[in-house]
Nucleic acid binder design. Structure first.
Lengths: 247, 247
DNA sequence: CAGTGGTCTAGACCACTGG
DNA sequence: CAGTGGTCTAGACCACTGG
């Protein structure tokens, strides 16, 4: 009785799809039909359809109708978490070691990485993230390399990254942004293998992320890179996981 | 003029957050305040707040108010795509080679993978996915191993997986589901290295995915595994990418 | 307690699709 | 053209929070 009426309608639709009565491409009842059938206002019927559309279950075409979406679990999502949160959630302790934290000047190779002209100042950091389990056993779980736009985070060099992760600090400084990221399986360079404390030839999961923001100049809106991060995880022990729930 | 009023309100809120006037944890104006300020109904102001909440920009607490979310780019998402779609989007051709497609009986080791008791029948397939570029150059881009619940997909063995990918076929048979998935960097077993046509010791991106469904028995609802897939990609050439847009 | 967000109504006008 | 989805209104009642 307490479940909202739009939830009842959503479940009704999902049940029909799961039973195979409505197949991908089929039209589902219109807002008006559902409103009449469930004796609710059109706005309530609409909410059920809207939420199922956002979940990828349905597709809507203005003027034409609402249809069962073609494929659902095809394109799905992997969650990328903050490393400290992830470790804490396992009930373990997160330790960080700052290997390097300095100001640098862009060379040719770095120009594209951070989107600043050659000769610009930027901040560079290397941090080793360690997971300590309940018995005190320590393991290097991530080596993080970061190229940071010094205009966006002018106080980056003054932070204590054993207390706050660079990721958490940057998100507090520049809260809204766009990001591109990707993962690869690689063999890490020897110096990174040493930092991760893994034998030569161990495959690593390399996660790269570029974060953007928009300059708020009154006249023009300019997109620029806030930071470029490269995160190395020792494989095959490290899993980047996700959970997908349809609807 | 043509932009919807709730969009105007969303942009207004985002601008304040980006400028740093409203910081994470701060309260934003209530539905009633926004409704009055923008001279819209409460439902329209509400829509702006609701959509920004769904995007992770705001957080709402019933009775208390709406607040700027604490961290945004921290937990973000990697998209997992259908391999054929991904190749076609690059303007290349997707070819598939079926290495193995047969009925098997669960042994101890496989029992947990597919969630069926030892001695049950299941379907097993191995498919090699090849990308052919515009000059006709071919490259193995994925080796796919799949354990499929024969009850859910009784006609699995009759499919031509050079024409439809197993993933696309299964999603047409069991359209709504839950899934868990994760990626690891590994060294592949020698036989898989051979199938991927890569030198020994090349790191691979291993993507595992378990798909669930719910049995529609009239009396009880039982969760069971639809299929378990293991996808191997040759690294470091292969990238699993994503794009995140805040708001 | 006043104020907040969560659900819902019974209308309205609009842009768009398809026959 | 009738029917669809997209936006919007001006109300209502409720559960919940905080002082």
């Amino acid at each position: 009785m307490n479940t909202p009426r739009f939830e009842v309608i959503k479940k009704h639709i999902i049940a029909y799809i799961e039973q195979g009565d409505w197949r991908p491409g089929d039209a589902v009842p219109s807002e008006n039909q559902l409103a009449e059938q469930f004796e609710v206002s059109r706005m309530t019927a609409r909410r059920a359809l809207t939420e199922l559309t956002e979940a990828g279950v349905l597709e809507r075409v203005q003027g034409a109708g609402t249809f069962v979406a073609e494929q659902l679990p095809t394109g799905s999502l992997l969650e990328i978490r903050n490393i400290a949160d992830e470790i804490h959630e396992r009930g373990h302790k997160h330790l960080a070691e700052v290997i390097c934290l300095e100001q640098r000047t862009t060379t040719d190779a770095e120009e594209k990485l951070i989107g600043l002209p050659v000769g610009s100042v930027y901040f560079y950091s290397q941090v080793k993230h360690i997971e300590e389990d309940t018995r005190g056993k320590q393991e290097v779980i991530q080596f993080e390399e970061r190229y940071v736009n010094s205009v966006v985070a002018p106080h980056y060099l003054e932070q204590d990254f054993t207390q706050i992760t660079p990721s958490a600090y940057l998100s507090s400084v520049s809260p809204l942004s766009q990001a591109d990221h990707w993962v690869e399986a690689i063999l890490a360079p020897a110096e990174i293998e040493a930092l991760l404390e893994i034998p030569t030839g161990t495959p690593c999961l390399k996660l790269s992320r570029r974060t953007y923001s928009y300059q708020q100049n009154p006249t023009k809106k300019q997109k620029f890179i806030v930071n470029f991060a490269v995160l190395y995880h020792p494989g095959p022990g490290y899993r980047l996981g996700g959970h997908l729930i349809a609807s």
